[in-house]
Amino acid sequence: MSANNNNNNNNNNNPSTLKSYVDSATGAVQNALGNIVGTPGDQAEGKAKQQRAQAEYDASHTAAKLPGMTVSSEGVAKDHPDRSAGSWNQTAGAAKEFVGGLVGNESLKQSGREQNLSGQEQEARGQVKDYTSGVGDRVSGAVGSAVAGLTGDRAKQAEYQNKHDAGKTQQRGAELDIQKQAEARQ
């Protein structure tokens, strides 16, 4: 029983975007009621709850991108192979394009340009696959965990929660790369 309680406590302590939204709304209502009724304690508690909700939201979106993987508070997710291969093709293509331009070899330059573009497309496909797979795992993990919780199957609940968490990490990794690429284009 102790292991199940620890597992549930660990899952309940994971940062949650949904929980941050609920807490933020609750804090806003409490703050508003404090303003209407004139109770500074409720106002302060409402503002504090909103600040905690923002911290929860920020934590739920925190992930670190490492070569070939993403690490978050929920775990580690390996990138789709197309992401790494695409990145490599971009690098090799850019090098060919540079060398071709440097030595005046138009064929090598064009070949490098094509390889670079192909690598960009390949990496984008991998990002989309990781993003959609992550969202799917989050949804099926959340639903499965809820059903298992209702039926009292703690082992299945933990299994589905792990699937949710891995999906969240995978989704966040794709989001980080997509955001980084969008910022680089600006």
Rank of each mutant, 00 (worst) to 15 (best):
N9V: 00
N9P: 01
N10P: 11
N10Y: 15
N14Y: 15
P15I: 00
L18C: 00
L18A: 11
Y21H: 13
S24Y: 15
A25W: 14
A28H: 04
Q30R: 14
A32D: 14
L33I: 12
L33H: 11
N35K: 13
T39W: 05
D42P: 00
K47A: 11
A48T: 12
A48S: 05
A53D: 04
A55P: 05
E56Y: 04
S60H: 01
K65H: 13
P67E: 07
M69S: 05
S73M: 02
G75W: 05
V76H: 05
P81C: 08
D82P: 10
S84M: 07
S84I: 01
S87T: 13
G93Q: 00
E97V: 06
E97C: 02
F98L: 10
G100M: 10
G100Y: 08
E106T: 10
S107L: 13
L108E: 14
K109S: 04
Q110V: 00
S111K: 09
G112C: 05
G112Q: 03
Q115I: 04
L117Y: 04
S118P: 03
Q120E: 12
Q122A: 07
G126T: 08
V128L: 09
K129C: 04
K129A: 14
G136A: 02
G136V: 01
A142W: 07
A146F: 07
A146L: 07
A148R: 02
L150R: 06
T151F: 10
G152K: 04
